[in-house]
């Protein structure tokens, strides 16, 4: 299985431009970036992909061992970089992918020229003196909610999708068809995402970093954004006056403007 098929890698923009890689967060797929990514196509080589288990990725490539922690996903990112020969790259990661980007940059710092972390959180669960925003019980409750919806979804919807593989336009008609994720994989991804603790990785980041924070975010609260900013040496924090966890969907223009300003600033 080649990497491009495995991760449903799609490239657009200038083939000779600096690469900019967009990584979607938990709960969705690369379509999340559809209002943001095109704005970079005139100057960059834009690369989009789906994490294994999400979107149009190859579900058979999933193995519980490989994706037992975020390191497995970071490894996928590095393999995509290898396959496409991406260097001097801008990495834009949303939510859990922000942390995946951090891990990838630590493993291969030379590849990354900038990190843009959209709504990052190194730890969701409250801990001794650390306010991640959620109790352990809340996380278990969410995993539960996830399971119940997939129970309904997988029985009612799967045949319809499987029955029309060659007519993608039908996708628009299908209920809740975006962000489709294999239920078993989603459950493990959720577990890995919401129970991981990557606080100790932040201070080792040596790539110029932008932390893009929403002013009213129930998943990654402002205090967590400030924490990430304080831990990553020399990072920049921009708070968007946006509610929710997905500024790239709810306020794409402001998101594009903030990323663009960061990429044009400072040392090359």
């Amino acid at each position: 299985m080649d990497v491009v098929t495995r991760n449903h890698v799609r490239t657009s923009g200038r083939p000779d431009g600096q690469p900019i890689l967009f990584a979607h967060g938990f709960g969705c797929d690369q379509q999340m970036w559809r209002h943001v990514a095109p704005a970079f196509e005139d100057r960059y080589r834009v690369v989009l992909f789906d994490h294994v288990g999400a979107g149009a990725s190859d579900l058979a490539s999933f193995s519980p061992e490989r994706y037992a922690d975020l390191g497995g996903y970071a490894r996928d990112v590095l393999e995509i970089c290898d396959d496409l020969a991406l260097t001097d790259m801008v990495f834009v990661g949303h939510s859990v992918s922000a942390i995946i980007g951090v891990l990838a940059s630590l493993a291969a710092p030379g590849r990354f020229s900038r990190l843009v972390l959209v709504g990052p959180s190194p730890r969701y669960v409250d801990d001794d003196g650390y306010a991640g925003g959620f109790s352990r019980a809340a996380i278990e409750d969410m995993l539960d909610a996830l399971d119940r919806n997939y129970l309904g979804w997988s029985t009612a919807m799967a045949p319809v999708i499987v029955g029309n593989p060659d007519r993608p336009e039908l996708g628009e008609e299908l209920t809740n068809s975006f962000c489709r994720t294999d239920p078993a994989i989603a459950r493990q991804f959720a577990r890995v995402t919401f129970l991981s603790d990557n606080r100790d990785d932040l201070h080792r980041v040596r790539v110029p970093t932008l932390v893009l924070q929403c002013a009213d975010d129930a998943i990654a609260p402002v205090a967590v954004g400030r924490y990430v900013h304080a831990e990553i040496p020399g990072s920049e924090l921009v708070t968007l006056d946006v509610s929710g966890h997905c500024p790239h969907l709810s306020a794409p223009q402001a998101t594009v403007a903030a990323i663009d300003a960061f990429l044009r600033s400072g040392p090359r």
């Binding site: 967060g25 938990f26 709960g27 969705c28 379509q31 999340m32 559809r34 939510s95 959620f134 109790s135 019980a137 809340a138 996380i139 278990e140 409750d141 969410m142 995993l143 539960d144 909610a145 996830l146 919806n149 628009e172 809740n176 068809s177 975006f178 962000c179 919401f194 975010d217 129930a218 998943i219 929710g244 966890h245 997905c246 969907l249 709810s250």
Partner: peptide, 19 residues
């Protein structure tokens, strides 16, 4: 509920905005 809130923010809201 707490769990529902995470699910809402990571799944429902993006889904609603997209489709």
């Amino acid at each position: 509920t707490d769990g529902g809130r995470i699910y809402h923010e990571t799944h429902l809201r993006p889904l609603l905005e997209m489709q």
